[in-house]
């Protein structure tokens, strides 16, 4: 395979990774919570998209906003009911709690949906650009992933809610003094994290077969992207996602696909030690 093809594959994958991780990164940066539910949120989004397509013939692109809105509600509720109560506790407590919640969600999904790999097959064919083959579905997935990530960026920069989220991320107590209801912002942020996960799941279901067993893999990707790019910022997740996609694509070709995942984790461990703020991260998130 030539260089351009490998790079193109990496970029397509990377855009999806960015969309997958940006919600996780936001929750980590704003709430200081490592959300172990993130992988299962992605799977849930993917499954809902698949079943809507298979049983009712609803096109995934129509389903995507519905799934995203549904997951926002789920995320908001989980944060408001459970996680807000321990949000200031040490990482061990919050991580263990989200892991416990994840076990429940995972179990519900395996019982009601089973772990069979499922994929939405749209059959859009592929195109050739400058000697590079690209399936249209993947291009579409990449474009939507970038669009969604960009939308989140604009929301955080431009809207009142977005500014409030950024304010809480910078200084929780100062934000509270400015009249921001911090707990509500936390719940909204967690909801947005779940929303992005659901949307990413819908995109993944169009591109790859997904199964509940992948929830850990997706979660691992989110870790790596966050650490590579830096926490809590949309550009960080974008840089991290693209970097991971390209790293995986090249190491898959050079060392064999079974090592691609290992290389990603090793790069992450290395960066954790050398530069824990990530490539474009800001200091001060410990």
């Amino acid at each position: 395979m030539d260089f351009a093809q490998i790079l193109a594959n990496g970029v397509v994958l990377g855009a999806l990774y960015a969309c997958l991780a940006v919600g996780f990164s936001l929750v980590w940066g704003v709430l200081n919570v490592i959300n172990m539910l993130h992988g299962s949120f992605i799977i849930l989004g993917g499954y809902l998209t698949y079943f809507a397509w298979q049983m009712f013939g609803i096109h995934p692109l129509i389903m995507l906003p519905i799934v995203a809105a549904f997951l926002f509600v789920v995320g908001y509720a989980l944060q408001a009911i459970f996680i807000n109560k321990v949000v200031t506790a040490p990482v061990l407590v919050t991580l263990t709690l989200t892991f416990g919640l994840d076990m429940i969600l995972y179990n519900l999904m395996t019982v009601y949906f089973s772990a069979t790999p499922r994929q939405v097959t749209l059959g859009l064919g592929s195109i050739q650009l400058f000697g590079v083959y690209l399936p249209v579905v993947r291009l579409l997935g990449m474009a939507l992933a970038l669009l969604l990530t960009g939308l989140l960026y604009v929301t955080l920069r431009g809207s009142r809610i977005g500014r409030a989220i950024v304010a809480v991320r910078m200084d929780r107590s100062a934000a509270a003094l400015m009249g921001i209801r911090v707990n509500r912002i936390y719940a909204i942020t967690f909801g947005i994290g779940a929303l992005m996960a659901g949307a990413a799941g819908a995109l993944f279901a169009m591109v790859f077969p997904i199964t509940t067993n992948l929830s850990g893999v997706f979660l691992g990707k989110a870790f790596v992207v966050c650490v590579i790019g830096g926490l809590g910022s949309v550009p960080g997740a974008l840089v991290g996602g693209l970097a991971l996609g390209i790293i995986e694509s090249f190491s898959g070709v050079l060392l064999g696909p079974q090592h691609a995942l290992t290389v990603g984790f090793l790069v992450m461990l290395l960066l954790l030690i050398v530069r824990p703020t990530g490539l474009v991260g800001v200091k001060g998130y410990e």
């Binding site: 980590w28 200081n32 490592i34 040490p90 990482v91 061990l92 991580l95 691992g220 870790f223 790596v224 650490v227 079974q258 090592h259 995942l261 290992t262 984790f265 090793l266 992450m268 461990l269 954790l272 030690i273 824990p276 998130y285 410990e286």
Partner: peptide
């Protein structure tokens, strides 16, 4: 000596990554 320089969330993530790397290395 290497990972204990990390604190809090980063240490947690790093220690989870160690499990994954060990598993991947052993299985390949």
């Amino acid at each position: 000596a290497i990972v204990l320089r990390l604190r809090g969330h980063y240490f947690a993530i790093g220690s989870i990554a160690i499990v994954e790397v060990c598993r991947l290395v052993v299985s390949s």
